[in-house]
Design a protein around this nucleic acid. Structure first.
Lengths: 218, 218
DNA sequence: CTCATAAACTAGCGGTGTAAGTTTTCATTC
DNA sequence: GAATGAAAACTTACACCGCTAGTTTATGAG
């Protein structure tokens, strides 16, 4: 088949289909040939639109990140903004957990990821956090959200009662974690996020408020 | 070459070499053929000692986990034990960051990972946390530690000043993050862990202490 | 001494990412 | 409107991948 009258592929169609395949069968199951087949095309044709497979994955990762809402940093207090962002971030990632290991490596050159980092860091600095602290806070929350979305904690435990009964006395009920996967994973996230933010709020009054009030114009 | 007089391979030697290759060149660069070559052997010979490549990776992941110290749960208060464990866990993972994406998928059937989960959960329950809360706390800390070790936050940002200058005003200094990688990553971890534990301590006095004192024998 | 097992080998299957070169169509310029 | 160069599909091919099957020979147990 030569060049068709109307292109069979577009970058958007490729990314969309790749995400669907990743969601359905996992990151490891995405090959250029399978992706091309799903698009009704031969493998190498993809390279007319992307230079490498990683470039496709970058685009997929960024479309997932686009869904993250950072608008709170423009309109709410920093603590509320942080909480809303963290939940939105988590929702975006858990909607497509299989891409998380790729995405979690950092923003790289992906526009949506960079825009998110920019909004978070900017919001924290504007709220009065010293730059170094703002970096640390953004990183710490990213650690927590990415870790929570990287894989289900609950599904990490095999559903085999005998495995635990023998050698791990406290894990006797671990084989039942999978049943309650969502409530376990989400409950752990909620608890951890609340604790984290509680601790940050205390730190804020301890450092930022103190510094503000010590300044002539504070 | 037929069966040699003394075995060329042992499970330990395979795991050791695999970890060294992963440390040096990344998880993606570990192939059975490259691993075998590093051991002075042909690829398929590995399958006399391990059934699949994943079984090798499981063994590698578990040797990394063995280094994690959970002894605090037997001798210290739960908050100190949690802090010591988290730091030890982080040190073990950051010593071999390339295996973290594999290891972070859950304990599976890996003995060291299960023993760690057992110690943490058991310690928290013994300290008075309700079982569901103990699960959440263990999961939340695992999220945070795994997320922090999954990849450097600092190295996630490209060292290209122009990338940021144009569109991401608050990230103007992001290209310099790599210079301070360790202090950024570790500072973020320290800040986040302190905040998390601070929040958990508050939660403890709010729930567990209250319940204890409300019980007849409290 | 016999013989099943263990531990290496070679050959090969179906799959991978991607480079190279071909063909035809589209869009632009004279 | 003709010429031309880029675009977008194709086929072929390479080097590598995990793993299976079958072969050979040394080992260790009966």
């Amino acid at each position: 088949m030569p060049r068709p009258r109307r292109p069979l592929l577009t970058r958007d169609r490729i990314v969309e289909t790749a995400l669907a395949l990743i969601d359905a069968d996992g990151l490891g199951a995405l090959s250029t040939r399978r992706l091309a087949a799903a698009l009704g095309v031969q493998g190498p044709s993809l390279y007319n639109h992307f230079a490498t497979k990683d470039e496709i994955l970058d685009a997929v990762a960024d479309t997932v990140t686009v869904a993250v809402d950072t608008s709170g940093f423009a309109s709410r207090d920093w603590l509320t903004a942080l909480r809303d962002w963290a939940w939105s971030y988590r929702r975006a990632l858990t909607a497509h957990p299989n891409i998380v290991p790729y995405l979690a490596q950092g923003p790289g050159r992906r526009p949506a990821a960079l825009a998110m980092a920019d909004a978070v860091y900017g919001g924290l600095v504007r709220a009065g956090w010293p730059p170094a602290r703002a970096t640390h806070i953004g990183a710490a929350l990213r650690y927590f959200v990415a870790g929570s979305a990287l894989g289900s904690f609950a599904r990490g435990f095999v559903e085999d009662p005998e495995l635990y009964a023998a050698h791990y006395p406290h894990l006797r009920q671990a084989h039942r974690l999978a049943e309650h996967q969502q409530s376990v994973d989400e409950g752990a996230f909620a608890l951890g996020l609340d604790a984290l933010l509680h601790g940050l709020a205390a730190e804020y009054t301890r450092t930022v408020d103190t510094v503000e009030s010590a300044r002539p114009n504070g």
